[in-house]
Amino acid sequence: MSNDYIPPKVWKWEQPSGGSFASINRPIAGPTHEKELPVGRHPLQLYSLATPNGVKVSILLEELLEAGHPAEYDAWLIEISKGEQFGSGFVKVNPNSKIPALMDHSLNPPQRVFESASIMLYLAEKFGGAFIPEDPRQRTEMFSWLFWQMGSAPFVGGGFGHFYAYAPMKIEYAINRYAMETKRQLDVLNRHLAENEWMAGIYSLADIAIWAWYGNLVLGRAYNAAEFLDVQSYAHVLAWAKRIDARPAVIRGRKVNRNWGEPWEQLPERHSAADFDALPKAPG
């Protein structure tokens, strides 16, 4: 790659650009191969991977179960590094070929839901407005923060995370540009959480969605960048992240559709609560 690159008048896809996902990136939509999705015995079928967007939904499902809602589900692993999101069955559920995706077989015909915030809102409304504040002001605040996360996190994952951890070369300008924006977003959160225990008055969808990205970031689980971003300086974000991290449903939910890390943290498929009990025990 040259430092004096001049963009052509019309961009053409000629060869992979390098980086961790170069082999599956392409500028067109649609399936690349025929593959039907599995369907388990529960009405709710989740097709996902334990990325920040993926764990939003698995954590919410576990929170719903913890709160006594009949939200039993099957979770199936979609290995995006192998291009499984481009299988014909998955594309039928999400034409954008991104995880997570959900099918609700309690309806006839079954209902597909894609985009993580859309899935969260669908599930919350399905179970009586769970984790959505009843107070109109808190409800509005929750929606503002939920969609703040949806609009802001691409700068963290697609921007900072890509250029800091996944790009084929370290580009100082790109890393500095996205590090600055990531730290600005952390400061937005830190200022809000200095005066609020939760994002919208009570623990809500906004906390789950934001924690999946920024909580994991300050807890040192993303891009090996905790020291680089000086996450310890965001004390209020860190305290909030630790409160959420200790919740039993969060502990379970972040293991679902995970196929890396310690053996006791990996539950590639989830079909019942008993699956967690079958995991190896963590040392100590």
Rank of each mutant, 00 (worst) to 15 (best):
I78H: 08
L123F: 03
K126M: 08
A117V: 03
L121P: 00
G83S: 04
E134G: 03
S106D: 12
T140M: 11
G89P: 02
S118M: 04
F127W: 06
P133Q: 10
A101C: 08
N94V: 05
Q85E: 07
V113C: 12
P133L: 12
I78S: 13
D135P: 01
K92P: 00
I80D: 10
L121C: 04
D135Y: 04
H105Q: 05
A117C: 06
N108H: 08
F114S: 14
W145S: 04
F90S: 08
P136E: 05
S97Q: 00
A130V: 11
T140F: 09
Y122H: 07
H105W: 05
S118T: 07
M120C: 12
S144N: 15
V93G: 11
P110Y: 04
F90M: 11
I80A: 10
A117H: 12
A130R: 14
Q111H: 12
P136K: 09
M120Y: 04
E79N: 14
Y122C: 08
F114D: 12
G129K: 09
D104V: 14
K98G: 05
Y122A: 12
E134Y: 03
E79Y: 02
S97P: 01
N94H: 05
H105L: 14
K92T: 07
A130E: 09
F131T: 13
V113R: 04
I80P: 13
S106L: 06
G83E: 03
R112W: 02
N108F: 06
T140I: 12
K82S: 15
F90G: 08
S106Q: 07
G128V: 14
P136D: 02
Q138N: 11
N96L: 06
D104P: 08
N108D: 11
S144P: 00
A130G: 12
K92D: 03
P133R: 12
L146V: 04
L123M: 07
R112S: 15
S97N: 05
I119F: 10
D104N: 08
A130T: 13
V113Q: 10
A130L: 10
M103Q: 09
E141R: 15
M120H: 05
P110F: 06
S88N: 05
V113N: 09
S81E: 01
S116K: 07
A130I: 11
G128H: 12
G83K: 04
H105N: 15
E125G: 03
Q111V: 13
V91D: 01
K126E: 06
S88Q: 11
L123D: 06
P109M: 04
F127H: 13
Q111I: 11
Y122N: 12
I99N: 10
S144Q: 15
Q138F: 07
Q111S: 09
L107Y: 15
F143H: 08
P109R: 07
S116F: 00
S116Q: 10
P109H: 07
E79A: 10
